[in-house]
Write a protein that binds this DNA or RNA. Structure first.
Length: 283
DNA sequence: GCCCAGGCACTCA
DNA sequence: TGAGTGCCTGGG
């Protein structure tokens, strides 16, 4: 892969395993808008960029080469060789092969931990369009420039009623608790990087509204813990369907099988499977 | 009008 | 320790 400046944009050529639609619409992030089939606006790391994918190159608009190197390269996980990851998973079984073939351009993003944490608190009992709407409401109302996601400090200064104006419902209390813990360093988000995954998960779960599933999403999508296997109803459904003869199975058993089968790449496998399950009516 | 959605907290055995 | 239930809200 090579990349170069072209005025106010950066062009990437010779890329592999990158499909902007699959990446954004596989349920891992919520701050994007579709402009056309191959172009999206993306809000992340307090910036708004436009990504347009052509057959042989990708255009990152409003991105300098330096920004690409310091922010977006990592955000889009270009440090990971997905060809290698897929080759490894491919050997595991036919199910994961189908899932990979269905969306071979999926990548796991490296998102901002704070925004990711809040996003997945909001995600409980919610569908994706509504999650997106709520996050946008919050950003417009309480974030800088009416576009940035509020900082922990900004959010800690709000009351439940103010958040409920953004349609957060019962999650407002959870969000305030998260903001208070993070802004006072009772929960040190940066510090989680140094911890073992199980310990980091335990720390995340000290926040109200963060249980096993939400913490695993945060660990996978913001802390690069590719071995975790967030198991929501969709993943549960696809795992039961393909690996347990359609029988009701506990999350523990599903995790056991996932770790045994996919090992260090379980999180990436999960994302292929999740997307596959959601897009296939057979489940 | 009713039911449910990509969980979690809380309560009560 | 595990099962049962309520939760905001909007769309099918």
């Amino acid at each position: 892969m090579k990349y170069y400046d072209d005025g106010n944009k950066t062009i990437v050529e010779g890329y592999d395993s990158f499909h902007i639609q699959e990446i954004l619409e596989c349920g891992q992030c919520f701050r994007f808008e579709k402009i056309s089939n191959d172009a999206y606006d993306i809000m992340a790391h307090r910036k708004k960029i436009t990504v347009t994918q052509q057959q042989d190159h990708i255009v990152f608009e409003s991105v300098t080469k330096q920004e690409f190197e310091t922010i977006w390269m990592h955000y889009f996980d270009f440090d990971t060789d997905y060809r290698q990851v897929k080759a490894t998973l491919w050997e595991k079984d036919l199910v994961i092969r189908d899932a990979i073939e269905y969306a071979p351009g999926i990548r796991i993003l490296n998102q901002d931990p704070w925004e990711c944490l809040l996003s997945f608190i909001i995600s409980q009992n919610n569908r994706i369009p509504r999650i997106k709407q709520i996050i946008q409401n919050i950003s417009e109302k309480y974030g800088d420039n009416g576009t940035c996601f509020p900082t922990p400090m900004q959010m800690a200064g709000l009351c439940e009623e103010e958040l409920k104006l953004c349609k957060t419902g019962f999650r407002a209390a959870y969000m305030i608790d998260a903001a208070q813990k993070v802004s006072t360093s009772a929960l040190d988000l940066n510090g989680l990087n140094a911890l073992e995954t199980t310990e980091a998960r335990k720390q995340l779960m000290t926040v109200k509204g963060i249980g096993p599933k939400v913490s695993d999403c945060i660990l996978l999508f913001a802390f690069g813990r590719r071995e975790v296997f967030p198991t929501d109803v969709w993943v549960k459904r696809v795992m039961e369907h393909f690996y347990f003869h359609g029988n009701e199975t506990s999350i523990e058993h599903i995790h056991e099988l996932a770790y045994k089968k996919f090992g260090e790449q379980a999180g990436i496998a999960q994302q292929y499977l999740f997307h596959y399950a959601r897009c296939n009516a057979i489940l």
